[in-house]
């Protein structure tokens, strides 16, 4: 297996990287989404722009009341980060169920979000954690809420000439609880169905799914039904999971079974938050 030929550049800064974009260019971070597609000759970019070593994209920091994860931060760095473990432990725990140890050392949250595989783990967690995606182009920076970032099957709000530079999360209020529950696809280990859920101190919920439909989504129907967070209410809320979604089907899960799994994992996630 070998890709089509391409050029390779490794700019030192985001600004320099932006100069390279255009035409059939692809951005390379960890490479764990991109390189497999190149090796299988599913795409043929002219040039790869390697952003993995741009220092400004490698940081995890607390910026006022926000947690900022740089676009080239790896799964493993998130897993091990003290800042993340302290403020957003769901991301640290969630990182641990992505791929395998080798993939976690190289794959990045930014790359995963930009690739927008409909079964990727991060998307659900970022949605449930209220994340925002910061995008930079030559025109400047813009911030897109995660809820508006995923636009369809492998497609996002990113346009040609954009670089995903940060993912920002509000520092959760004291008492916030979050969890990520996943039914693993037995071959790829992606999420056949993944449900991330957050319980906020005011009693509201954020519930998001991956693996269920063409794109990850926040599930308002469930969120509005959590009520008093009693077990019975949560079980009823979970029954609303993925209502109105176009459910995916493949040889591991038909539409019917996938929807069933969405309900089960929704329930498990919600119950996790009350204990």
């Amino acid at each position: 297996m070998i890709s089509y030929p391409f050029d390779y550049v490794r700019p030192e800064s985001v600004e320099e990287a932006l100069e390279h974009l255009g035409g059939d260019t692809k951005i390379l971070a960890g490479g764990h989404s991109l390189l497999p597609t190149l090796k299988l000759r599913l795409s043929a970019p002219d040039k790869l722009v390697d952003i993995a070593r741009i220092a400004s994209l490698k940081k995890i920091k607390k910026d006022g009341d926000e947690i900022v994860i740089g676009g080239a931060v790896t799964h493993r760095e998130i897993m091990d980060s003290e800042i993340i473990q302290k403020h957003l432990p769901v991301l640290s725990e969630g990182a641990a169920v992505i791929g395998d140890p080798m993939i976690r050392y190289k794959g990045t949250m930014g790359g995963s979000l930009a690739h927008a595989d409909p079964s990727a783990d991060w998307s659900a967690m970022v949605l449930a954690a209220g994340g925002e995606i910061v995008i930079q182009s030559k025109k400047g920076k813009r911030t897109v809420p995660a809820t508006e970032f995923f636009t369809g099957f492998y497609s996002t709000a990113l346009k040609d000439g954009d670089i995903l530079i940060e993912i920002r999360f509000p520092v959760p209020e004291e008492g916030t609880k979050m969890t990520y529950q996943k039914f693993t696809q037995p071959a790829s280990r992606f999420a056949l169905v993944g449900c991330a859920a957050a319980r906020l101190p005011d009693g509201s919920a954020r519930v998001a799914f991956t693996g269920v439909a063409d794109a990850p989504f926040r599930d308002k129907g469930v969120e509005e039904a959590v009520g008093d967070w009693s077990e019975a209410t949560l079980e009823a809320a979970a029954q609303k999971a993925a209502e109105g979604q176009n459910i995916n089907a493949d040889h591991y899960a038909s539409e019917e079974y996938r929807l069933h799994l969405a309900k089960v994992y929704c329930k498990r996630a919600l119950l996790q938050l009350v204990n």
């Binding site: 390779y8 764990h32 497999p36 390697d50 993939i103 190289k106 790829s188």
Partner: peptide, 27 residues
């Protein structure tokens, strides 16, 4: 394999185990 799945190509890069079939030599 060609899908970063099997791990036969695992080496250590800067002290971390990585799949060398999913890393370009230039990286």
């Amino acid at each position: 394999c060609d899908t970063s799945s099997c791990g036969s190509c695992t080496v250590h890069m800067d002290g971390m185990a990585v799949k060398s079939c999913t890393i370009l030599a230039v990286q």
